[in-house]
Nucleic acid binder design. Structure first.
Length: 546
RNA sequence: GGCCUGUUAGUCAAGUGGUUAAGACGUCGCCCUCUCACGGCGAAGACAGGGGUUCGACUCCCCUACGGGUCACCA
C-alpha cells in the first residue's frame, strides 16, 4: 500500500503497465536453436578492436543459426554521445563486413522491436521501474554527490567495502514523509534497486565461453534510474534484452563483476535470463606488462587505423577469426578458398584468457589473403584505398587500368603465388618503377664492381635485347654476355670457385635489375621488362650505363 | 584492499590422467634460385613455483607468485 503510494509519488506520469509494454514485444518466431544477438555500443564515434571482436562473435552466432543480429544504441549517457556516432558505427562495421538484420539505422529504426535507441525508451524503463517500486524492490535516494563521497571516504578509512549497502544505504528504509518532503522541495533523486543479496553467499553461474564460474551475491543497492529518469546500463540491459528477445548476450569480460547484480535484476523483474558469452579481452604489451588495448595510447586500437593503413577488410576479419576460434587456422589451411561463412563458429573454441594483438601475424594473414586475390581484385581494392589516402597514386592507377593489372599479375595465381603485399599502402612502392613518373632509384650497384664492366655489360645487353625473345632465349643471352665479360654464367660453377671470376650471372642480372628498376630486388626481371616495353627498358639501361 | 578471473615457447594456441607436449606467426640455418618473394627441409624455444591425490599428472585439489578485470547517477 505504502509502495503503491510511493510509486505514484515518484512517477506520476507513467500510466503504462508492464503488461502493456510486453504486449508490444511479441515472442520472436524463429527456427529451433536460432540465436538472437545484439551489438550494443555507445555512440562515442569510436570503434575499438575489441568492439569488432565482439561484433564478429555476435554476427557469427546469429547467422550460423538462422537467428537475428541487431544493433541497439546505448546512448543513456548524453555526455558520451557524439553527433555522428551512429553513422560512424554503422559505416565502419559495414566496411568490415558486419551487417545488421535489424535495429537502429542512421535515420531511424528498422525492425519491430524498437525503438533501438535507449534514449527513446524512457517510458518503457520507467514503467518497469515503477512496477519495481510497487513491489518494494526499488526506492528513491536523495543523496548528493558530496554525501556519497563522504560515505566512500568513511568506508575507505575503515577498510570496508565501498558502496551503497547496509548501514550506508541511508534512504533504503526512509519513511514516506521524508521522501515527500524532499520531493516537495524539488530535490532530485535516483532510483535504487533494493538488494537482498549477501556477500557471503556464493553461487555457480554457467557462461558460454568461460564455463562455470563462481560469483558472489551482490549486496549493493545500485542505481537503476538516474536523476534524469534515464536508466543505467544495468537496468537498460535487463529490460531491453528481455523485450527484444536477445538469447545470447556477448560482452566483454569486464562485465563479469556486475553479473551478480544483473542476475538479481532479471529475477526481480520476472525475466528469463539470456545466455551470456563473456569474451576475453584484446591486450597489448606495454613495458613488459600486458594491458587492455587503449584507444588513447594505441593507434591500432581504432578500427579506422586498419582501414587507413590499408589492411584489406578480409585480412582483419580473417585475423580476428584466428583469435576468436582456435581451430580456425587449421580449417583455413584445409579450405584456403572457402568463404568464411562456411566455418563452423562456436563459443566452445573461444579463448578464456586475453590475447595479445600480434601485428606480425596480421601481416602474414594479410599477405595470404591478398595472394589469393586476382590481379583485378587487387587493383580495385588498391584503387579504392588510394582514392581516400593517396589521390595522386589513384590517378596513376586509373590512367591505365590494363597496364596496372598486368603489373599486379606478376607471380599471381598458381600453386605458389607471390606473397609480398600485406597492405594497400605498400602497393605504390611495389609498382612505382613501372611508371616513369614514379621511377626513383633506391639501390645502386655496389662499388666492388668496376664501372667499366657494368657499362660494358649494359651496353651489350642493350644491343642484344629483343623483346620478342622467349624467357629462356632472353636469359641465355644474359649468360653469354656474362661469359664474354669475365662473369661466370653458371651459379654452381661460380660457387665452387668465386675467385676465378669477376662475378656471376647473378651479378650481371643485378646490374640489369638496378638499371631497369632502380633496386636490387624485384619480381621476375624478364616479366618486368616485358611489361615496361622495349623503349623504356633501353632508355633506362642507356641512362644508367652513362 | 574486497570480489572475480587467468597462467603451455617471444606471440597465438592444441591438449582434458599414460603424447617423442600438435600447429601457426616470428627468429635462425640449409635447399630451390638471376635478386626478392614463394615453396621445401630443418633448428632453437614452453607446461610459473611448491605441496598433495594417484601406479602415473600439463591435465584433479590446495597454497604461493605473477598477470588481467572490476568496485560511478560511464558503458
Amino acid at each position: 500500500m505504502n509502495n503503491e503510494l510511493l510509486a505514484e509519488l515518484l512517477y506520476p506520469n507513467i500510466k503504462t503497465l508492464p503488461a502493456d509494454i510486453e504486449a508490444r514485444y511479441p515472442k520472436r518466431v524463429l527456427p529451433e536453436g536460432a540465436k538472437v544477438t545484439r551489438f550494443a555500443p555507445s555512440p562515442t564515434g569510436f570503434l575499438h578492436i575489441g568492439n569488432l571482436y565482439g561484433a564478429f562473435t555476435d554476427e557469427r552466432l546469429a547467422h550460423t543459426t538462422g537467428g537475428i543480429f541487431y544493433l541497439r544504441i546505448e546512448d543513456t549517457d548524453a555526455k558520451r554521445t557524439v553527433p555522428n556516432g551512429i553513422a560512424i558505427i554503422i559505416e565502419t562495421l559495414a566496411k568490415l563486413g558486419v551487417i545488421f538484420d535489424e535495429g537502429a539505422v542512421i535515420d531511424g529504426d528498422n525492425g519491430a522491436y524498437g525503438p533501438y535507441r535507449q534514449s527513446e525508451r524512457a517510458e518503457i524503463y520507467q514503467t518497469f521501474a515503477k512496477q519495481l517500486i510497487r513491489e518494494g524492490k526499488a526506492y528513491p535516494c536523495f543523496c548528493t554527490e558530496e554525501e556519497l563521497e563522504a560515505i566512500r571516504e568513511k568506508q575507505e578509512s575503515e577498510k570496508l567495502n565501498p558502496g551503497y549497502y547496509g548501514e550506508f544505504a541511508i534512504w533504503r528504509d526512509a519513511p514516506i514523509e521524508k521522501i515527500q518532503e524532499k520531493l516537495d522541495n524539488g530535490e532530485a533523486f535516483v532510483l535504487r534497486f533494493r538488494s537482498e543479496g549477501n556477500i557471503n553467499n556464493k553461487l555457480k553461474f554457467g557462461d558460454e565461453i568461460k564455463g562455470t564460474i563462481d560469483v558472489t551475491e551482490n549486496d549493493i543497492d545500485h542505481v537503476i534510474l538516474k536523476s534524469d529518469g534515464i536508466p543505467t546500463y544495468h537496468f537498460a540491459h535487463a529490460v531491453d534484452d528481455h523485450l527484444m528477445g536477445t538469447t545470447h548476450v556477448v560482452r566483454d569480460e569486464s562485465w563479469l563483476s556486475t553479473l551478480p547484480f544483473h542476475i538479481q535484476l532479471f529475477k526481480a523483474l520476472g525475466f528469463k535470463m539470456p545466455k551470456y558469452c563473456h569474451t576475453a579481452q584484446v591486450l597489448k604489451l606495454d613495458n613488459g606488462n600486458k594491458r587492455k588495448i587503449s584507444k588513447r595510447k594505441d593507434p591500432e586500437a581504432a578500427l579506422t587505423y586498419y582501414h587507413s593503413q590499408g589492411y584489406p577488410v578480409a585480412a582483419v576479419r580473417e585475423y580476428l577469426m584466428t583469435l576468436l576460434n582456435s581451430n580456425f587456422e587449421e580449417w583455413r589451411l584445409a579450405n584456403p578458398n572457402a568463404p568464411i561463412e562456411d566455418f563452423k563458429f562456436t563459443t566452445k573454441k573461444m579463448s578464456v584468457s586475453g590475447s595479445l594483438f600480434d601485428l606480425d601475424k596480421l601481416n602474414d594473414v594479410s599477405k595470404n589473403v591478398i595472394s589469393r586475390m586476382t590481379a583485378e581484385e587487387v587493383y580495385d581494392l588498391t584503387l579504392a584505398w588510394a582514392k581516400e589516402n593517396d589521390p595522386e597514386f589513384a590517378s596513376v592507377l586509373e590512367a591505365d587500368k590494363e597496364y596496372a593489372v598486368r603489373i599486379l599479375s606478376i607471380g599471381r595465381g598458381g600453386k605458389k603465388p607471390r606473397k609480398d603485399i600485406a597492405l594497400w599502402s605498400e602497393v605504390k612502392n611495389y609498382m612505382s618503377f613501372f611508371y616513369n613518373g614514379l621511377f626513383a632509384p633506391v639501390d645502386a650497384v655496389p662499388k666492388t664492381f668496376e664501372k667499366s664492366d657494368v657499362s660494358a655489360i649494359l651496353n651489350a645487353f642493350a644491343a642484344a635485347y629483343d623483346e620478342n625473345d622467349a624467357q629462356d632465349v632472353w636469359f641465355s643471352k644474359i649468360k653469354e654476355i656474362a661469359s664474354a665479360n669475365g662473369f661466370c654464367p653458371d651459379m654452381k660453377l661460380y660457387k665452387a670457385d668465386p675467385s676465378a671470376f669477376k662475378g656471376s650471372v647473378a651479378d650481371v642480372s643485378m646490374f640489369l635489375r638496378v638499371a631497369v628498376t632502380g633496386r636490387m630486388n624485384s619480381p621476375d626481371l624478364y616479366e618486368v621488362m616485358q611489361i615496361l616495353g622495349r623503349e623504356t627498358v633501353l632508355a633506362r639501361i642507356k641512362a644508367f650505363a652513362s
